[in-house]
Amino acid sequence: MSKNGTVAGMDIHGTLGKLEGAGNIFLPRKAAVLLANDDTPIEKRLTLRLEDDAPFEFSPGQFIEVSLFGYGEIPVGLASSPTRQRSFDIVVRAVGRVSKAIHGLHGGDTLHVRGPYGNGFDLDALRGKNVLIIAGGLGLAPTRSLIQYILDKRDEFKRFTLFYGTRDPNTLLFPEDLEEWRESDKVEYFETVDRATGPWKGNVGVVTTLFQKTKLEPGTKVVVCGPPIMFKFVLRELDSLAVPHQDIYLDVERRMKCGVGKCGHCQINDKYTCTDGPVFTFAELEKLPEAF
């Protein structure tokens, strides 16, 4: 960068460079933090709005690359539905340099985002069907985009069931949403914790114990998102219930460094999680030996 504030003959812009515009896939957009909330001791929820106020179109299940200059970028699933426009939510768990730096942000601060990326959930396949969402731990964040979407367009879907399992009551995300879902007649909501602490009176046990609480109807589409270990147990359970593998949608995690199908870190065999996924059907994934 030269002293007169130009980069390669171009003015430095606060927003998109005029020569490059949307053409530069690595140039992020600035977003304001409207709200920052510590949902759990290690997970912060941020409500963001793009500073250029341009519409931000995305589909449930897509993700963005979130960054703080000087620290770096991380992939984060969009945790709110595009039906609730103008702002969007993400949840960041403090695990590394970037995520810990993001944890230092408050309302009024800014960060940068690129995206949206990835395929998202196949809404056309889910419409008009019974839908069961199984979320484990932080897996509730990306699935919340779909949960909100279904709740906002409730008529488009048939029976809607949600399983949410987490380690202990202190690690429950989106406490206001949980309150709402517990009361709502729009969703059959079941929750569990691996270990009960404090005043917890709900179910105790891994997420698969929730299958006993309700009966899965044939033709139900199942969406699963959670830690790798959870997939194993949930898929075993779904197999025992004879759910066809093409009806199971898995939102998987890999190291999606660039988000645009180039950098190679998120590959599962010949698929790029960031562009071919992050949502795959079980039928697709079971053909990939590196998936599980």
Binding site: G5, D11, H13, N24
Partner: peptide
Amino acid sequence: EGERYAGCI
């Protein structure tokens, strides 16, 4: 640089 940023192609 501070609040400003740009691509550098």
